[in-house]
Write a protein that binds this DNA or RNA. Structure first.
Lengths: 222, 222
DNA sequence: GTCTATATACAGATAGAC
DNA sequence: GTCTATCTGTATATAGAC
């Protein structure tokens, strides 16, 4: 936990958005309006089902203006995904989890994780990123790195620390992190993403996290 | 485990394919060729990126023939998904897992599960089903019921039995099944589905399952 | 049943006025 | 920079010959 001081913070390595002439967009400006409209439409119905006409109409801009800022539908889509990723997938304050009881740290992080994962925006980004990952491999990578991978790194660091301090007995910290986050996600995430089930209430989420933490701490007890 | 004799077998309730005039398609017949081509193309690149021209060309049929069997692109897509679901997502023989040691049963089922989940066809179906779930909610349901839900039911039944016979101490069997399958899936499934990582080898998969089983059995030990 | 050829609509992208 | 109007390709779906 010492070496990477804040594994869940935003890094800016190889950011395709940084290359765009306007960035970040002034709130209320045309680019901002366009990105907002694109987010709304693409995330709601996917890449293929959205026309540039619809984006322009929703943003109250003409198509020509749209193309003045984004050279193609692909580029707009990419910019939108990157924008949403950084806005909604990694908002976790860095705190001193290593000093807490391991169960408390996991419970705390787990609650933040599951709430983030099941927020409407994150669900939408997830669905689109998975669905279009074949057509936009670069975006899939950006999505994974800005969201799921940050959590993997943060939890892995916590696992390393828990093992070092003897709180748990963990041979493969990365594997343990996979297991913990996987338990929390579970098939429920799939059902919710496909709208087969509503987003659960707070108490239900907390009970879910508590159960996973208990199982995990017992299973990895020294 | 007694009441549902075989929770992982195929049920035929409310099957949209049964309504089609040809079904099942004669191997080598035009409908079969078309469905095969549709599977190949749709699963590879998603719904929006595939044209009916491409399907006809790939199947070596004319577009008119295609439309003679499937009234629209939507209907073809739906038929293809249903077809693939029943072919690739639930192929598990029913055995007497209840009589085995619980760890052995979980290990056995886990290995089958993870191999099925990470098979190229299942990955492709999964990606498309998630990506198009908003446009085709009925299909999302069919996919979930024919694949993930069968596993949930089978593992839940096993959990109930393990608790009843005192092998484990499980208050919420469904939750426990979620946790077990979630651990196995983990973020690795996401990385593989997005082609950020190759499909792991057999030994790696088995080690993954073993670790999850150990964690699970310790965590739920009586 | 199966094909070739075509109708019709709409997509993404641009030209040119202001 | 922003708009209106339009070009051009291609998609789904069908008509009519064999």
């Amino acid at each position: 936990m010492e070496k990477q001081s804040c594994p869940l913070s935003h890094g800016d390595e190889s950011d395709p958005l940084a290359k765009l002439p306007f960035w970040p967009p002034e709130p209320g400006s045309k680019p901002a309006l366009i990105l907002e409209a694109a987010g709304k439409l693409f995330l709601e119905t996917g890449y293929g089902a959205v026309s540039m006409d619809a984006v322009a109409r929703t943003a109250n801009v003409s198509k020509a203006t749209l193309y003045a800022y984004f050279r193609s539908k692909d580029e707009l889509f990419a910019a939108m995904i990157n924008c949403e990723c950084r806005r909604h997938l990694g908002d976790l304050q860095c705190e001193e989890f290593a000093r807490m009881e391991i169960a408390d740290a996991l419970r705390h992080l787990g609650r933040v994780f599951i709430r983030m994962l099941l927020s409407p925006k994150a669900l939408a980004v997830y669905r689109v990123a998975v669905g279009e990952s074949h057509r936009f491999p670069e975006l899939a990578k950006a999505f994974y790195n800005s969201g799921p991978n940050r959590w993997m790194e943060g939890i892995t660091a916590l696992m390393i620390d828990a093992d070092r301090t003897g709180k748990l007995r963990i041979d493969d910290p990365r594997l343990a992190a996979e297991q913990f986050l996987g338990m929390l996600r579970s098939h429920r995430h799939l059902r919710i993403i496909m709208a087969l089930e509503p987003i659960p209430g707070e108490e239900q989420l907390d009970a879910f996290v508590d159960s996973a933490v208990t199982l995990f701490c017992r299973g990895y007890a020294p």
